[in-house]
């Protein structure tokens, strides 16, 4: 939802980042305002997932220059957990399995970390169970998954539902969903997309990273960005995704050749 008076939540300015010795992001710029849904598309290796991990603070990704400002604060000064507590959420492309750690306990600790930041009271086990059972409805998830270890033995679809469940519990200000649609069948995609739509509010924002129009059929973005070689090459409305679906990314090569 584009509103001219909405505040800026996330501003990325001339961001350069590398992993090991390879520079992946080459001066990326992006502004996201409250209420907006953005989609980033692009070929494999264009830097989409790197951008997500850099924003979330993955220690393997080194920012070499540039700024990421979240609600007026330099996000890059914060540890990953501080970013999450202050309202940045990364939905993982491949959610990690953590054997032996109860999903319910993990969700409770994470929820209380966010609540602490917001100045809310910590939820005890009973109060949290009430809350989580309510949030399960957002992604139509079986409560049995709460009793298992985090993501252990979950199918691809169950893992993605668990990601959106976490998003529902943490109530982030900005959610970056990295290929949330990968590995999902049509029904699961609809459930997950419906969850994301339910959680979109006028005061938060969503950044979808995806390869496919099928996700954008379910979640209509306000802006679609095309990434290539570590920067955003083109920005448009939701119609840009349809155009990409038809014409692919060959025009990127032509654009590069012309630039060279």
């Amino acid at each position: 939802m584009i509103r001219s008076d909405s505040s800026l939540i996330l501003e990325i300015h001339d961001l350069h980042a590398r992993v090991e010795d390879q520079e992946i992001l080459h001066g990326l710029n992006l502004k996201i305002r409250e209420g907006e849904i953005h989609a980033i598309m692009g070929r494999n290796g264009s830097g989409k997932s790197t951008l997500a991990k850099v924003i979330a603070g993955h220690p393997s990704y080194i920012v070499t220059s540039g700024k990421v400002v979240f609600q007026g604060r330099n996000l890059l000064d914060l540890e990953p957990e501080e970013r999450a507590r202050s309202g940045v959420f990364l939905g993982f492309q491949y959610p990690v399995e953590i054997p032996g750690v109860s999903n319910l306990e993990f969700l409770r600790v994470a929820t209380n970390a966010r609540r602490e930041h917001l100045g809310h009271e910590e939820l005890d086990t009973f109060a949290f169970e009430d809350l989580v059972r309510d949030k399960l409805k957002v992604v139509q998830m079986d409560p049995a998954f709460l009793e298992r270890s985090v993501n252990e033995g979950f199918s691809g679809g169950e893992k993605k539902r668990n990601e959106i469940l976490q998003m529902a519990l943490l109530e982030p200000m900005v959610s970056i969903l990295d290929e949330t649609d990968s590995g999902l069948d049509i029904d699961a995609l609809r459930v997950v997309a419906s969850g994301v739509n339910q959680l979109a509010r006028p005061d938060n924002a969503t950044l979808l990273i995806t390869h496919y129009q099928r996700l954008l059929n379910e979640i209509t973005p306000d802006f679609v960005h095309v990434m290539a070689a570590g920067r955003i090459l083109r920005t448009g409305g939701s119609e840009l995704a349809l155009e990409l679906e038809k014409s692919g990314y060959d025009w990127i090569d032509q654009a590069s050749e012309m630039r060279d």
Binding site: G57, E81, A110, V150
Partner: peptide, 14 residues
């Protein structure tokens, strides 16, 4: 490290 980062990305301190 991937398990630790996953938890930290949910606000859980190291």
């Amino acid at each position: 490290q991937d398990e630790l980062f996953y938890m930290r990305s949910r606000g859980i301190k190291l």
